[in-house]
């Protein structure tokens, strides 16, 4: 299709408005001071304008995060819409920063803005990428860790979208368990 008059071009609206946050680990500041809202968008075109403008996760410094959340949900456990929820967590090895991280993050974003999880998309709160020396992490956060059907739908489709091998298991952990853990591992409520 040819757009005759660019001023009449209507952008493609997304189901949700999304907010992209950036976390920079500055030890002289508090956790909340380090969390900054970059921008919000609610069309396909504005999503790409933002995506094309910012650094890929593999170029970020250690300790930095990107978070993409539905407008109105803060990227923290304490938010009303997160506190009963949890996350599908994918832990990458060091080699995967070079090979997979940026691709996985883009696929994650496309799953969110495109509402790829059918009805279960309503359970999605957002997604987070953590860039860490020991291994980067990707997660999709959902609103209620008791919504088994929605969580399993999201986990299965997410794994397919990232083309993870069948035998590779990914786990879902409640924020409650993650925030109260004493050791270095949190038990999985679900896995696919």
């Amino acid at each position: 299709q040819v757009v005759a008059n660019p001023e009449q071009y209507i952008k493609h609206p997304l189901q949700n408005r999304w907010a992209l946050w950036y976390f920079k680990n500055d030890k002289t500041k508090s956790w909340t001071e380090n969390l900054r809202l970059i921008s919000k968008f609610d069309t396909v075109e504005d999503f790409w304008a933002l995506y094309n403008h910012i650094q890929q996760p593999s170029k970020l410094n250690y300790g930095c995060d990107y978070c993409l959340f539905k407008d109105g949900i803060k990227p923290m456990w304490e938010d009303e819409r997160n506190k009963l929820g949890g996350r599908w967590l994918i832990t990458l090895n060091r080699q995967q920063r070079h090979n997979d991280l940026d691709r996985y993050w883009m696929e994650t974003l496309l799953c969110l803005v495109g509402e790829s999880f059918d009805e279960a998309s309503e359970d999605v709160c957002g997604a987070v990428v953590n860039v860490r020396p020991k291994g980067d992490k990707l997660a999709i956060w959902t609103s209620n860790c008791q919504n088994r059907d929605a969580i399993m739908t999201i986990g299965q489709l997410y794994k397919e979208r990232l083309s993870l091998p069948m035998k590779a298991l990914i786990g879902y952990q409640s924020h409650d368990d993650t925030s109260s853990k004493s050791g270095s591992t949190t038990k999985n409520m679900y896995s696919v």
Partner: peptide
Amino acid sequence: AKKRYDREFLLGFQFISASM
């Protein structure tokens, strides 16, 4: 109706938007 976009549709706009 829900506004859902599949992967290929979204990817088709990656470089269109940059010139707008």
